[in-house]
Amino acid sequence: MNSWGIKMKYKVHIDGGSRGNPGPAASAMVIYDEKGEVLYEKSKYLGFTTNNVAEWEALKGALMALTFLAQRHGKVEAEIYADSELMVKQFNGLYKVRDEKLKEIYAEVRKLASNPALQVTLTHVYRKDNKAADRLVNLELDKQKNLNIDSENKE
């Protein structure tokens, strides 16, 4: 809660993607304030990995950002939206996480989500309703592709 005793509320859209599975991958998040204004957006290049890892990394990044906001402003309530139905069902306990790499990230995500200053929900949305985060993932992957092309041309 902030100094007025009000819990800060946010909406967060996340996405992860790879070009090939596995392939070059990136994750992204867009955090909106209560008025629907973009508060923060970030994308991150992940290297060569799977789409599922990229989705989980996006969730981990969002929870880290929300933890930071909670440290600065007090308790945080956030609705997180993702277009990965599998990840949402795994996070919400409907499906088990079986992949060893994903189990590591899952454990980190669960630890972040258990922070008493955070109250988060994770909901599935269709890709058409997740355009801002999807756009950031693709921009990050395009940027990395262009960096690789530029470095190849200099050799």
Rank of each mutant, 00 (worst) to 15 (best):
D142F: 02
L112Y: 09
E57R: 15
F68E: 15
G47H: 06
M8D: 09
L102V: 04
V120A: 00
S151E: 14
S27I: 07
A82E: 02
F91R: 04
Y10W: 10
G16W: 04
H124V: 06
V53S: 00
G47W: 10
T123I: 12
L139Q: 14
N52E: 04
K60N: 13
W56D: 07
Y81K: 14
A133F: 05
T49S: 03
L112K: 01
E85H: 13
L118V: 05
V53P: 00
G20I: 02
K143R: 14
Y106A: 08
P116N: 06
L63N: 02
E104D: 12
G36C: 07
L141S: 00
E100P: 13
S84A: 11
T121L: 07
M8L: 12
M29Q: 10
K7E: 12
E108A: 01
I14T: 05
T49E: 00
N138I: 02
L112V: 10
E55A: 00
P24S: 14
G61E: 15
K44S: 12
N146K: 15
Y40G: 07
N130M: 04
V137H: 08
T50W: 07
W4D: 13
Q90T: 07
Y32F: 15
N92R: 10
N146Y: 11
G17S: 02
Q144W: 15
R72G: 11
I80T: 06
G93W: 02
S114E: 09
K75T: 12
G5L: 06
D83Y: 11
S84Q: 08
A54Y: 08
S151M: 11
S27G: 06
E104C: 07
E34W: 02
M29S: 03
M64E: 11
A54I: 00
H13F: 13
Y95L: 09
K7H: 11
G20R: 02
R98E: 09
V137E: 02
Y32D: 00
A70T: 04
G5N: 04
S3N: 15
K35E: 12
A28K: 01
Y40S: 14
Y10R: 05
D15T: 01
K11I: 09
K103Y: 07
Y106S: 11
Y45F: 14
Q90M: 04
W56I: 08
W4L: 13
D134F: 02
K42D: 10
V88I: 12
R19V: 01
E100A: 13
V12Q: 06
F48Y: 15
Y40T: 12
